[in-house]
Amino acid sequence: MSHYFKLLALEVRRFRYILAGMMAYALIVECLAVAREIHNYANRYGIKEGTREPGVLPQTYSFADVIGNVQSGFALAVVLPLAALLAYVLLIWYRDWFGRHPFAFRLLMVPGGRISLYFAKLTAILLFIFSMLAWQLVAMAILKLEYAVVTPELLKESSRFTDAMYASEIFKLLLPLRFTQFLINYGMGLLAVMLVFAGILLERSYRIRGIVIAALYLALNVTLLVLASMSIELPLYPSETVAVCLTIFGLEVAGAIWLSLKLITGKVSV
C-alpha cells in the first residue's frame, strides 16, 4: 500500500511543472478573453471614450452575459490543456519506455509493485483531470473579481453563479450543473482511460498483434455500451434500464482492470 502512495507521488512529481503550466496558461487566456470582451462591449457603447451617442441607453452586461460571449476564448483556454492531458494518458506509460535508460525496468522490478504501478498511473491521471477542473472553478471566481474591477459601473449587473456556469457551452460538458450528469460524464471518461491503459498494456505485451487485439477489445466494449443504451427497446422500466446500463458499465470497468493487471503482472515486456 505504501508503494502505491510512493509511486503515485512519483507520477505526480514528474508532471508537476506541466500541470502548473497548464493551469497558468488556462487562467491567463481566460483573463485576457474576459478583459477583451468587456472592453469591446464598453467600446460598442462608447462608454470608455465618452463618445456615447445620446439617446442610446446601454444594456447592462452581467457576468453571465460575458461568459456567454467568450465561448471561443474559453475553448482556447481549455482545449490545449485537454489535449495535453489526453496525450499524457498515453505518455504516462510510454515515457517510461523511451530513451537510452528506460525507466520501465526499475518500475516493473519494484517488489510487489506492479499492481500499485497500474493504479498509481490511473489515479494520477484522475488527479490531474480533477485538479484542472477544480482550478477552472477557482478561475471562475478570479474572473468574477476581474469582472467587478474591469467593468464600468454603468454596465454592471449582478447574475447568479449558476447562470454563469450554465452560460458556457464547455462547462455544460466538463462541469455540468447536475451531479448525476457529472458522474455519467466522468464515469465514461474513467472507463475510456481504463480501456486506453488496457490497450497500451496489450501493445507493450504483444506489440503489433497487441494493437490489433486492443482495437477489437475497444470495439467490443463500445458495442456493449451501445447495446446497453438500446435496452430502452426492451419492456423495462427506466429504473431497470438504468440498472442494466450500470451493470454493463461495471462489468466493463472490472474487465478492463482485470485485463490490465493480468498483462502488467505477467505479459509485459521491456
Binding site: 514528474r14 530513451g99 528506460p102 525507466f103
Partner: peptide
Amino acid sequence: YEKVSFIPDHAAMP
C-alpha cells in the same frame, strides 16, 4: 525482486 537484483546494460533511471 528483493532477493535477485538485475543490472541492465543501461542506468534505467530517468
